[in-house]
Amino acid sequence: MNNNEVLLKIENLRVWFEIRKRMLSQPLYVRAVDGINFELKKGESISLVGESGSGKTTLGKTIIRLYEPTSGKIYFDGIDITNLNSKDLKWYRKETGLIQQDPFGALPSHFTVYRILEEPLLIHKIGTVEERRKRIFKALEDVKLTPVEDFSSKYPHMLSGGQMQRVVIARSLIMRPKLIIADEPVSMLDASVRIEILDLLKELQDKFHMSLIYITHDLATVRMFSNWIFIMYAGNLVERALTNELLNNPLHPYTKALLSAIPDPDPENRKKLREVPPGEPPNLINPPPGCRFAPRCQYAMEICNTEPQEIEVQSKHWVKCWLFNK
């Protein structure tokens, strides 16, 4: 398999949600995702990091077409999937998978684990009863829920959070998709099981050579498996770079703030205040003109009132900031 093949290409993607539609008033838009470009190669993974409301979940779900893009293009394997009809959309559903944040809610409580895993196979009319059984048991083995016979007959509420999330992972992988969107897959789990879930995800991603977009607000976990880190703020990608490059050499003021806000377990923390920007992310109905971080940025200049372009500062390190845009 050619590792340099581009799987996903996003061009100038916008997702605006219309709100407060009155008969005569101008419609208002929440600009959840506002002008995003990137490429993802086969087998690679991206960590999409941002605070809540930054549009990272919207971006992820738009990529797998759970939301309609407002404008821009999404290419998957060279095919434009921005405006698929429902028949082709069903094909696309097979090619992509979603792992959600809340395993308790992500599983239909009235199905057994077996039935939960069988659903995608039934929907896409795959195999005979026997073939499906084999595939389901294999999927349970893959996520290490053994003995598979025991687990397959259980209902979700009989499982622990970690086990549920394994079922969610098994379900999203059972169609062998080429792209997985993992939306905060461990944030609702106990600290002690987070690592094993992330390890499992990483292992399966390598095993099946999938591309993965890992959406998280927790920078501390990204080091574990992603090739890339994308930092998202208020609907924009403000910085993207390879993982180590970004962690060691953050350029955008927001990235720096984010990195400095993350506590590492260190008893010295209590003796000092963290240097973090004040305030909170802007309202996406009426975002600041220009750079959206400008109102909180200690380096803000006059030019920041116009929107900066994303530029490649170093090889494979893009920043959307006037500081580097001379």
Binding site: A191, V193, R194, I195, E196, A220, R223, L247, I262, D264
Partner: peptide, 15 residues
């Protein structure tokens, strides 16, 4: 040992 940290790249082990 199970807590991921940003600065130290250590092998994590879950409970």
């Amino acid at each position: 040992n199970s807590v991921p940290t940003l600065k130290i790249d250590k092998k994590l082990r879950s409970i």
